[in-house]
């Protein structure tokens, strides 16, 4: 089976939801990014790598600013491929790229996905691609050997859930709130949405958007197989703090009761 599949099962065997940290690649600098990512890998089951993008319309202010800073520092797509290569040398855990579609179009899907797969990437998360919108793009990712992850939201109808899970091969990324990325103090009741999704798929379901610490992680882990945390970690980095203790705390809280 795939690394992604194994990672969710491994966490489950330990009585936990899988822990999935997100960092913007190259933020605050390529060196500092690799150092932080390596440290976070200790507490992670999977790792999400954000490709900096000029117009991230699904992201809140924290990830926007991190992306802008990385671009200002001159981080290019080819640099992020090299970062994937370095991380792959350091870990066997699954690495996923989160990218908007335009950087993929700009390189051409085959070259873009092929280059990342060759560097050791396991999967790709496409936040502005409803999978039925561009079948060729999804095919290109899968042909390159990448697993494909798409988002579902509280507004998703059963029709949309069916369509999206049909093209999902890694896990289902469930957006906890109707909104953009960003840490929140509390989450809405997630069980109705997760239950609706599970009615259509056996794949692992991870919850993201709004995970800020132990309390929100505990709430997500109660219903889901994985917990994604991004803005809260980047917030620590932006404040000049080490995000590793926060991720360790989230891992402890992500027990499945």
């Amino acid at each position: 089976m795939s690394r992604i599949h194994d990672a969710f099962h491994g966490a489950r065997a330990e009585g936990r939801a899988a822990v999935v940290p997100y960092l913007t690649a190259g933020y605050p600098s390529p060196e500092a990014y690799l150092e932080t990512a390596t440290r976070l890998l200790e507490f992670a089951d999977l790792m999400e790598i954000g490709l900096p993008y000029s117009d991230p319309l699904g992201d809140g202010p924290t990830i926007q600013r991190a992306g802008e800073a990385a671009l200002r520092a001159g981080v290019r797509t080819s640099d992020v491929i090299e970062m994937v290569r370095v991380l792959r040398e350091r870990t066997d855990k699954p690495l996923l790229l989160m990218t908007y579609v335009n950087p993929v179009f700009a390189w051409g899907a085959e070259r873009f996905f092929g280059s990342f797969a060759e560097a050791g990437l396991d999967g790709v998360i496409l936040p502005d691609l409803p999978p039925d919108e561009d079948e060729a793009l999804v095919d290109a990712a899968q042909d390159a050997g990448l697993e494909t992850v798409f988002l579902l939201a509280p507004t998703s109808t059963d029709d949309r859930i069916r369509t999206v899970v049909a093209r999902t091969t890694g896990f289902v990324y469930t957006v906890s709130v109707t909104g953009v990325t960003g840490a929140r103090d509390r989450l809405p009741d997630l069980s109705p949405l997760v239950r609706r999704i599970r009615a259509h798929t056996d794949r692992p379901v991870a919850v993201g958007f709004g995970i800020s610490g132990a309390e929100t992680a505990r709430q997500a882990a109660r219903v889901a197989d994985g917990v994604v945390v991004g803005s809260a970690l980047l917030g620590r980095l932006a404040a000049g703090e080490d995000p590793a203790p926060l991720l360790a705390e989230i891992r402890r809280a992500a027990r499945v009761e």
């Binding site: 699904g58 691609l129 409803p130 798409f150 998703s156 109707t178």
Partner: peptide, 12 residues
């Protein structure tokens, strides 16, 4: 054309 948007907006 098309709809390259977050899934949240598809039903709307």
């Amino acid at each position: 054309g098309g709809r390259y948007v977050p899934e949240t907006l598809m039903p709307a």
